[in-house]
């Protein structure tokens, strides 16, 4: 283990954390404000990535493709809200889980039919295709820096909206006490639409940004959805700050665990058994973190205020 490798892995962990935050933020908002558990949120991430493949391919421009992909993701999200989700807000969580589960089956398969089952990829935009020199002999791709920066900028924007604007105040109030918000005379349906559209855009944005560095394939949304759940549970349901902290913890623990667990175990055991145990342990690591957090603080690290 060298310092250089450590720095690179920390950056990788940050980058995973940022992607997780973008997905988890929408999920936790929708859940916190609407008491709606949307398993299909991961599918929005996947759609963002696929739409990026199509639109960047069509236009030949990353920025234009990004804008079109986001608009298309938003349209699909709103259509789903109108057709299905709207009818589920009043239902119990079991119905919500099941209906959105059915939607995942449909959309994963639909994506396979439209784009094929083989993994696709998007080229990194030329301007950002270089590397940044960190230390002697250690390079890190510029695009990944941009991704981390963009994610942090979105997080800052989100913080501003939630903490400083009127809509944000309603969101915070809704996350801790939804009936109160409707008692204030706010059009709940409109608020729900805004929250939902917003969450969809964030997940879609994460998908577009991830497209150049990950392989775009059916089911890619499912894995990130479950990681986002872990993030939300660790951070505290309904809390944006919790989602941010939780996402960074999960991103760093997972990445560092996978790269250094073997070396760590080599100190105690032979190479083959270290490899086997390391693979098993590192894949379980974030769940162990989650269990530990829950055991100490069942409501998560930074629960939304007023939610017990």
């Amino acid at each position: 283990m060298t310092t250089g490798l450590l720095i690179v892995q920390i950056l990788n962990g940050l980058q995973l954390g940022i992607l997780l935050f973008l997905v988890a933020a929408g999920l936790t908002l929708v859940f916190g404000v609407m008491d709606f558990i949307n398993l299909a949120h991961g599918v929005q991430y996947m759609l963002g990535a696929y739409l990026a493949v199509t639109f960047i391919g069509l236009t030949g421009s990353f920025l234009l493709g990004l804008a079109l992909a986001l608009a298309a993701a938003l349209l699909i999200g709103l259509a789903l809200e109108f057709l299905i989700f709207r009818h589920l807000y009043e239902r119990d969580h079991l119905d919500q889980v099941l209906a959105t589960f059915g939607l995942i089956l449909l959309l994963n398969q639909a994506v396979k039919m439209v784009w094929g089952a083989a993994p696709l990829s998007v080229a990194v935009p030329e301007l950002l295709s270089g590397n940044v020199r960190l230390l002697d002999g250690i390079l890190y791709p510029t695009y990944r820096f941009v991704l981390i920066g963009a994610g942090l900028a979105v997080a800052a924007l989100l913080w501003f909206i939630v903490e400083k604007t009127r809509t944000g105040m309603l969101l915070r109030a809704g996350a801790s006490n939804a009936p109160m918000v409707s008692a204030l005379g706010v059009d709940i349906r409109k608020l729900f639409m805004i929250v939902f559209a917003f969450g969809t855009m964030l997940a879609g944005f994460a998908g577009v940004m991830a497209a150049p560095i990950l392989s775009v394939e059916p089911g890619m949304g499912d894995n990130i959805l479950i990681l986002a759940f872990v993030v939300i549970v660790v951070g505290g349901i309904g809390s944006i700050r919790g989602a941010f902290v939780g996402a960074l913890i999960v991103g760093l623990v997972d990445t560092l665990g996978r790269s250094f667990m073997n070396d760590l175990l080599r100190l105690f055991m032979s190479a083959p058994s270290a490899r086997a145990t390391g693979a098993a342990l590192s894949s379980m690591l974030i769940y162990l973190v989650m269990a530990t957090v829950l055991f100490v603080r069942p409501e998560g690290l930074l629960p939304a205020k007023g939610r017990s």
Binding site: I84, H87, L88, R91, D95, L98, A99, F101, G102, L103, I104, L105, L106, L107, N108, Q109, A110, K112, M113
Partner: peptide, 15 residues
């Protein structure tokens, strides 16, 4: 592609 049929069946069933 049976899941394209099956998924909506689940959704409709719930609704």
């Amino acid at each position: 592609h049976w899941k394209v049929i099956f998924g909506p069946m689940i959704v409709l069933f719930v609704l």
